[in-house]
Each structure stands twice: as structure tokens, then as C-alpha cells.
Design a protein around this nucleic acid. Structure first.
Ligand SMILES: [Mn+2]
Ligand SMILES: [Mn+2]
Ligand SMILES: [Zn+2]
Ligand SMILES: [Zn+2]
Lengths: 147, 147
DNA sequence: TTTCTGAATTAGACAAAGTCCAATCATTGA
DNA sequence: TCAATGATTGGACTTTGTCTAATTCAGAAA
């Protein structure tokens, strides 16, 4: 795992190390992702990046997140059919998803593992194993839908 | 697991057993889902139901799939950010997802299990644990994107 | 410092999946 | 048979994400 890259120079170094040219927009997006290590959707990142004054377009946010994924800076988390979340933590771990609040939290890799890997069909290769623990707040059963 | 419900009377009984009024449209949709026990998206179901002659609207397909989920007749499979898949197999099992072809296949519950359940935060309740094995055909790396 | 060029960014049109609503229709118990 | 209750419908709408052609930028070279 990378050292905590809060400062501009550290973020620039981080992008460069991944073969990414450090433009202003990419640094803003990296800032948002790595400052607090949360799971954010593209639209949340767009909003946070443009909080003070508009400076990054929707297209660039999507382009950049795709690039960050390809270069292994972030990873996609697919738990909610409505949107993809982006995870700045690329080390192996799993997720707990609160279906009432939409909150995603990490489960350390050590605290949960499979007792067997499935045999793959001829010529297939594992890309990754996602484990998602879906949880609920029983109080919130009937209504409490958030997004 | 339910006995194979191919015939109309069997499908009607199945819906009734789950507290669902067996309308023509719901029976058509159940037919499509249970005939071949596949993982289908809403749009695929809509297309199959209206293959011979149009008889079911998009709104009804979505309404019905939601109802079937609530009543435990089918379950959602969330592996592809573009669409939800519906699984007529509600017994515990996991999934293998081919990220190149989009193909989803079942992994029997027995052949894959966790060596520990994570401790849940105060007052949370597990709704389910999804394990998704993402696989790839190495030949198809650079290009072979299908949807 | 200035120039140049490929790469990056952008606005806004577009697409796909899914939701919603008010009007209409069907099922079913009486 | 006949309401009344529940189900279905077309189509407008929303949200998330993609695409494109025009513009701007970063940074290497001079
Ligand atoms: Mn038919
Ligand atoms: Mn979508
Ligand atoms: Zn995570
Ligand atoms: Zn399945």
C-alpha cells in the first residue's frame, strides 16, 4: 500500500509512478479520493472537486476514473445497481454494504477468506474474487430506503 | 428448491404459494425465468416475453421482477454495473462472472465457503453474503469486450 | 522564454437502464 | 354477473454513463 499522499508533490509522484501525467484535474480528483480514503461514486467525486469553484467536467471525471482503474490506482466496487463506487484502497480486501444507508465499509482480507478456490473452466483466469456482506439495520426494515 | 415448474398450472401454483396473483403477464415472465434456469436482465426478459407478439410492457416487467424479488421467487445478481440480472435459483450459491463475455454461471454453495463470518457493527443484521469470482479469457485481453 | 505538438479537457448531445404516473383494463370474490 | 380492487400500460422523465469534435494545456525542445 502507498504511503499517505496528501500533499501536492506526493500526489504528483503517485500519479507519475503509475505512468499518469499529473494534470490539474487529475490531481484534484486524486486529492478527493486519497484525502479521506472513502468509497465514492463518480457523481460524488464530481461534486467534491467542483465544491469551491467549477474546474473539472463530468467527462474528465469519468475519463480519469477509468484511467486510474486501468493503471491500478483505484478499483471499482460493484455493490449498488445504481452506480459504481471507486475505492482508493487497491490492496486485497472485501466489503460490507449497508443496503439501507448505502454505506460501504472495508473488511480486511485477513478477517475473511475462502476455504477453496473454485475450479475454473478450461483456459479461464481469475481476475479477482469479490466478497460482499450485505447488512441491514433491522429497525429500518419497512421504510428506511436511502440511496 | 422448488420442483421444476414448466406447465401453466405448476406456474400458477408457484405464484399462489408465494402470495402472488397469477396474471397473464406474470405467468409469461415466470415462464421465461423458470423454463431455462438462467440469469437474465430485465431487458432480456422483456424481449423474450414479447418474442411472438407484444403482450407485456416494460413497466410490468420491472414491477413484476421487483415483486418476485420481494416475495423470494427470484433474487438479484449485481455483478455488472450496466444492468441487474435476475436469478430464479434462490437457494444459497455463488457466481462466476466472465468479464469478457458477460456470462454468469453458478457456483454451488458447498464448493466455496467462508472460514469466518465478520463481526457486524452493533445492531446490524446480515442480509446475505455474495461471492463473485471474476474470470477472464486471457486470449481476449486487449480487445474482446462484449456486453 | 517561446514555440510546438500530442495529450487532455470540455460542453453538450446522446444512450441505456430504470422509475413514475394517470388512465385503462383484468381478476376475482360476492 | 358485477363492481371493486389490483394490475397493466404508454410514454414522459430521471440518472448514470458515453461519445465527439472543438479547444486548451503541459511540457519538451530550441
Ligand atoms: Mn405469448
Ligand atoms: Mn446506468
Ligand atoms: Zn474498499
Ligand atoms: Zn445464480
Amino acid at each position: 500500500m502507498e504511503a499517505m499522499p496528501y500533499s501536492r508533490p506526493a500526489l504528483i509522484a503517485l500519479l507519475r509512478r503509475h505512468g499518469i501525467a499529473p494534470t490539474h484535474q487529475r490531481l484534484e480528483i486524486a486529492q478527493v479520493l486519497f484525502a479521506r480514503c472513502q468509497h465514492l461514486s463518480a457523481e460524488q467525486i464530481l461534486a467534491q472537486v467542483n465544491e469551491r469553484h467549477a474546474e473539472t467536467s463530468k467527462a474528465t471525471v469519468y475519463n480519469t476514473l477509468k484511467l486510474f482503474c486501468e493503471r491500478g490506482l483505484v478499483r471499482e466496487v460493484i455493490v449498488d445497481p445504481k452506480r459504481v463506487f471507486y475505492d482508493p484502497n487497491t490492496s486485497p480486501h472485501h466489503h460490507m454494504y449497508n443496503i439501507d444507508s448505502g454505506e460501504i465499509t472495508d473488511i480486511p482480507a485477513e478477517s475473511l477468506s475462502l476455504n477453496a478456490m473454485p475450479e475454473l473452466p478450461e483456459g479461464m483466469v481469475t481476475e479477482g474474487v469479490d466478497i460482499i456482506v450485505r447488512v441491514r439495520t433491522p429497525d429500518a426494515v419497512g421504510q428506511g430506503r436511502l440511496g
